[in-house]
């Protein structure tokens, strides 16, 4: 099983899917920060005063991590950020559902508004699985992350 998860095609597909989804998800949020801020505020899980800072930073973090993942750079840290964000999104949506809030999920910005619900939760859980996969099995040899990094217990002097 681990060999499949570590295989280059699986890792590349995982990287491209997760990276592309987050790049696409970030564009409309960056273009319409006010709409995304309203969507964030509607969850009522973070203090009102901090909503704008969150709404400004998160889409750019999504974009940067997405671009880096697609480019094969900083795979582990990029997937860690995306996984953390996805975990927060899932918890926030479950919290909204538990409180019976009928709100726009804010997942893909105003252009693709959709109500918080199980479909959105499962989408994020699926993406979270990709993020966790990349965090633990990201392909070090193929990406810059592992390029030139000596195996454990060796030094650069052992790899002329």
């Amino acid at each position: 099983m681990k060999s499949i998860l570590r295989s280059r095609p699986v890792v590349i597909i995982s990287r491209l899917v997760l990276g592309t989804v987050f790049i696409l998800a970030s564009i409309d949020k960056i273009a319409h920060p006010d709409v995304f801020a309203d969507a964030v505020a509607a969850y009522r899980v973070i203090p009102e005063a901090l909503v704008n800072i969150f709404a400004l930073a998160v889409p750019w973090l999504e974009l940067v991590c997405g671009v880096f993942l697609v480019g094969g750079v900083f795979i582990r840290s990029g997937s860690a950020w995306l996984s953390m964000m996805l975990t927060v999104f899932v918890v926030a949506m479950l919290s909204a559902m538990a409180r019976n809030l009928k709100i726009d999920c804010g997942c893909f910005g105003a252009e693709h508004a959709s109500e918080v619900g199980w479909a959105r939760v499962w989408e994020d859980v699926g993406l979270l699985a990709l993020g966790i996969h990349l965090f633990f099995f990201g392909e070090p040899d193929f990406s810059k992350e592992g390029r030139g990094r000596p195996p454990a217990g060796t030094s650069l002097a052992d790899n002329p």
Binding site: P33, E48, L56, A57, W60, L63
Partner: peptide, 21 residues
């Protein structure tokens, strides 16, 4: 990097938000 880009974009965007809502 993300925070830097967000702040720069927000400063020059016509749809920029105030940092405190």
């Amino acid at each position: 990097l993300s925070v830097f880009l967000a702040l720069v974009y927000n400063a020059f965007s016509q749809k920029g938000l105030s940092l405190i809502r």
